[in-house]
Amino acid sequence: MTDTRATILVVEDEPEIRRFLRSALGAEGYKVVETGTVKRGVIDAASHKPDLAIVDLGLPDGEGLELIRKVRAWSPMPLIVLSARAGEAGKIAALDAGANDYVIKPFGIGELLARVRSALRSVVRPAGGGHVLKLGGTTIDLDARTATRDGAPLHLTPIEYRLLTSLARNTGTVITQGQLLREVWGPAHESDTHYLRIYAKQLRDKLEPDPLQPRYLITETGVGYRLVCD
């Protein structure tokens, strides 16, 4: 039988961190490829064609951001960033460079594995591709711009559709608020975060069973939003 397990590339220079990543990812049934530098990481990403990469931001020969930009230039593979820095600016920089998600050190392995599973599930959709979103009892046809909730028609405004379309292009992935504002309202409104807050609330009121503790439209405080499908 050929090896059908997902391959995960780990780019991390700390041997002790690599050790527990290797054992936990291996125990989950993933095939692990390890490397410790930006240079080797770029090469291994091309030669091993992993299904996902976990990238430490501080590597001995450069910034993990550099690796993310290089890999993102040719591959849509999910990239999860490990960062010791808790600052929101660092997370935003990594996401804008093309990372799909981030985990802050120190982290529990449960948290990392959940992100890995979610990232492997996430589907990258072409910008104009026709598709239908299913969020619990709500079905949204992003092309036809029709929606139903529990069988009854649900009205969404054009901006609400645009916002959902931007989020749905890469479900499970954190989209930064700057990116959403640029895509939905235009580059002039990049810092008008109140637009986002108001429309996020409207969407939650329409889509979420409990808008205060949302299941589908998740806020990454200070960073952006992610859309989670069942």
């Binding site: 996020a200 609330k201 205060l212 503790q213 990454e220």
Partner: peptide
């Protein structure tokens, strides 16, 4: 401080989670 417009409900949600 990195201030921008936010709602208390939206800030509280992830905290409760």
């Amino acid at each position: 401080l990195q201030c921008d417009w936010n709602s208390i409900a939206e800030i509280a949600g992830p905290v409760l989670l």
